[in-house]
Design a binder for these strands. Structure first.
Lengths: 348, 348
DNA sequence: TTGAAAGCGATACCAA
DNA sequence: TTGGTATCGCTTTCAA
């Protein structure tokens, strides 16, 4: 089904007011109206004023589609996110909106649930010209676009890198962050450090796991590396994993969770089963979920500059489109290690 | 600035493949290609198959803008949210996407930060035909649309009602929910019940406050109604409000928070200042934030069927557009009262 | 500085 | 069932 009224007529009941109508009212040619309203310099201040007034009075707004068709420009950027309900993506989008706002470029968001078909459908928005550029938060280039490298200059990846070359990326160094967090555990005397990781195939979680491994090796603890990759990184997965862990004979004394949500779920279960946090098991999360600060105990975590990532990503994309050449470098932004009570740190 | 390359040429480097190209390749008329690809019945299965193949082989995708211009149909719905970073809106969007998916209608999301200008810019997407319909989660009709009642049939409000008549609404009965929650406090023996409300001008929070008042009156406690409207409903506001409350000589023994986030912040502060929850003060939140279950103590709350609201809202909109007549009724969906430890309920 | 006219790419009539 | 063609509303050359 498509949207349409029962009559096979065009959908808008009354043809809305067009540039021709304004031209007639102003007693000029449509092209003059076009120039006046789109800010061309080749028009007298006088005529522009008159036309602008008439347009305003009559509530004229340019037909977006006609404008796009003719000028081959959409003034819209499409953001592809895997799951709009995950708390982290919307904050990136906020940054993107901020960067594009002043340029009068709109943002549209498509959520894919990691469904390839949906990704493809959205990618077409770029090919068909409904969007001028693409920002990928899902870490995957829709297959069709992989075969059309001429679009690379119109694509930027944020947060999760895309493996395809020639596509700019803005994110943080997840490996280093995980390494730093693990070493912090070591520095406060924890040894049996477990890493509750996210899906292994995700570059982000792979990098975090690698950082954990590096740190353990660096601390001479490679003999007791204890790493598990979970199929998800939400609270449900964290609860399940924690139940399994608490069935062991020897418990870890510290857990580095690949996400704050994993940590929330895990700590909840630990608490329910009478484990004291951080005394018996210390926790560090990842992502700085807003509730982490109010959690009990407040969650130590890595703060990712999501808003800034979005802002820079959008700027990079604009630049890349304008110059018509890909900006392919990786921009790694600084993260912040927020020490709170969940790892026992100072108050221990 | 607008997006364009330095040369004043159209933005796409190579004119992409058009319907005319496919027509030539297939040895038919463009109109036949159009019919074949848009699923018109007036075309042989044979021809359709041939054309479809050729189109696929050549990676043809219809130009969205041209299609829209001619057919006056965008196959897109615009969702306006006040703040995409608030956890509740994305879940509604998920439901909307679900409902529209099978109809091959896309969803675009615009976040406004309650900025009227931004609302207006987005509303224009409807007027200019970039979107076929509008779903408002922000509880406010962009002013321009208020003067164009012919668009009412293309607008649906979810979650927050819009005051303008003729616009369908899907939500829950906030007043009743707040009333029920308050009476629950009464039923477990609490009397000095405070309501930490959200912004007064928001119909949602006004309704919740009214429900609280009704319940207090019903319980014969109208003498000690203790209601405050906060300027926001996030954790920061909750913390601030709680600090003020804890400075009083006599503390409330129960607090109904207008949002879970308010409750998170308030409970955090209470905990920090040595108040025991729920023994000294019991809490009930609103909205069923995903972290509420893992919070300490787990938060009693009202679960709002956000996903379902989105789904129904989108369906209603589709119907309204198709029939070309507004569906103006209010649909109030059932909510769920989730009793957890924060109000001391059973485990008390 | 303005006007005239040629498209942008697809769709939807009317004829055949 | 197909072909021819006008047209959607705007932008952008080219002339005046």
């Amino acid at each position: 089904m498509t949207i349409s009224k029962s009559k096979s007529q065009p959908a808008s009941s009354k043809a809305s007011i067009t540039i021709v109508d304004i031209a007639k009212l102003a007693g000029v040619n449509p092209s003059t109206v076009s120039r006046a309203l789109s800010g061309s310099s080749a028009v007298t201040a006088q005529t522009r004023a008159r036309i602008t007034d008439i347009a305003q009075e009559n509530g004229y707004v340019a037909n977006h589609n006609a404008r796009m068709l003719r000028s081959r420009r959409a003034n819209q950027i499409l953001v592809i996110v895997p799951n709009i309900a995950a708390f982290s993506h919307p904050e990136v989008i906020l940054g993107i909106e901020e960067a594009l706002e002043e340029h009068n470029i709109g943002v549209i968001v498509g959520s894919t649930k990691d469904n390839e078909e949906r990704e493809l459908a959205l990618a077409r928005q770029l090919i068909t010209g409904a969007a001028d550029g693409l920002i990928l938060l899902n870490g995957r280039l829709p297959s069709e676009l992989g075969e059309l490298p001429q679009y690379n200059r119109r694509i930027v990846a944020i947060s999760r890198p895309v493996l395809s070359p020639g596509i700019a990326f803005i994110g943080i160094d997840n490996q280093q962050a995980a390494q730093e967090a693990t070493l912090y555990f070591v520095s406060i005397g924890r040894k049996r450090i477990l890493h509750m990781g996210g899906p292994e195939q995700s570059p982000i979680f792979a990098a975090r796991a690698q950082g954990y491994r590096n740190a353990m090796r660096q601390a001479g603890l490679d003999g007791i590396i204890d790493l598990q990759h979970l199929p998800a990184f939400n609270m449900v997965a964290g609860r399940q994993a924690m139940r399994d862990i608490l069935n062991r004979r020897q418990l870890p004394d510290a857990i580095l969770c690949a996400s704050d949500e994993l940590a929330f779920g895990a700590i909840q279960v630990a608490r329910e089963l009478g484990i004291s946090v951080p005394q018996q098991i210390a926790f560090i999360g990842f992502d700085n979920h807003p509730v982490g600060e109010a959690f009990s105990p407040p969650l130590t975590t890595i703060s990712v500059p999501r808003r800034r990532m979005g802002f820079l990503g959008a700027q990079t994309l604009l630049q890349s489109i304008q110059d018509d050449r890909p900006i392919s470098d990786f921009q790694l932004l600084p993260y912040e290690f927020l020490v709170r009570a969940s790892c026992g740190g100072s108050s221990w």
